[in-house]
């Protein structure tokens, strides 16, 4: 199976690439629509600011993300990549996202230290693809200052809590997202990546 990691030019993609390879995928780090077109699935990695991310995504990968939004190709958004799937974000102003999942991206409350950085556990709320075989209380590595507020609660497969309760895993058809970094989350993260590849096969 071939997975295209969409390079938004905002950081090193070695970890996510290796994470996917360990799970058995053939990985292409795509710089353009053309390179992403022949993949079986897309991964939208997640570092940097929302505004820069959505701009790079529209400039480089308009067609690829259109196809993902129409459900033609599965997509996994990680951290900022998951936030880019939502309608809009309030990070550094107000910016429109892809809108494939309805809802907003808002800042963590001032009652907690920001960023939310480190290992936090998740609570699995409903059956999903990414959480197959993963129980309540499993730990994942989070690094973020903003979180997703979906308009429909049904997209939230698993949640975590830090100052507020928010989605750790979302799914909507062939659109998947994790607020944590599976590629930095040891063996539990490896299981999530394998589950994504399994879901793509089905």
């Amino acid at each position: 199976m071939k997975v295209a990691v969409l390079d938004l030019g905002m950081g090193n993609l070695l970890s996510i690439r290796r994470g996917l390879e360990r799970a058995g995928a053939e990985v292409v780090v795509a710089q353009s629509n053309g390179e992403a077109a022949c993949a079986d699935a897309l991964v939208l990695p997640g570092v940097g600011a929302f505004r820069d991310g959505i701009r790079a995504l529209r400039e480089r990968f308009g067609e690829a993300t259109d196809a993902a939004c129409q459900g033609k190709i599965p997509i996994l958004g990680i951290c900022l990549g998951m936030q880019l799937l939502f309608t809009r974000s309030y990070e550094g102003g107000e910016h429109h996202g892809l809108g494939v999942i309805r809802g907003d991206v808002v800042k963590l409350p001032p009652t907690v230290k920001v960023p939310h950085m480190g290992w936090n556990s998740i609570k699995v709320l409903r059956e999903g693809e990414l959480t197959r075989g993963i129980g309540d209380g499993e730990y994942f590595y989070f690094v973020h200052s903003y979180y997703c507020l979906p308009a429909e609660g049904s997209v939230t497969i698993a949640a975590t809590e830090y100052g507020s309760t928010f989605p750790a895993v979302v799914e909507k058809g062939a659109v998947f997202g994790t607020q944590f970094h599976p590629e930095k989350s040891g063996s539990a993260g490896g299981a999530v990546i394998r589950n994504f590849l399994e879901a793509v096969k089905r």
């Binding site: 939310h116 480190g118 290992w119 936090n120 556990s121 998740i122 609570k123 730990y139 989070f142 949640a159 975590t160 809590e161 830090y162 309760t165």
Partner: peptide
């Protein structure tokens, strides 16, 4: 669900 203390 709690953010854990890290050992580095």
């Amino acid at each position: 669900m709690t953010l854990t203390k890290r050992i580095i």
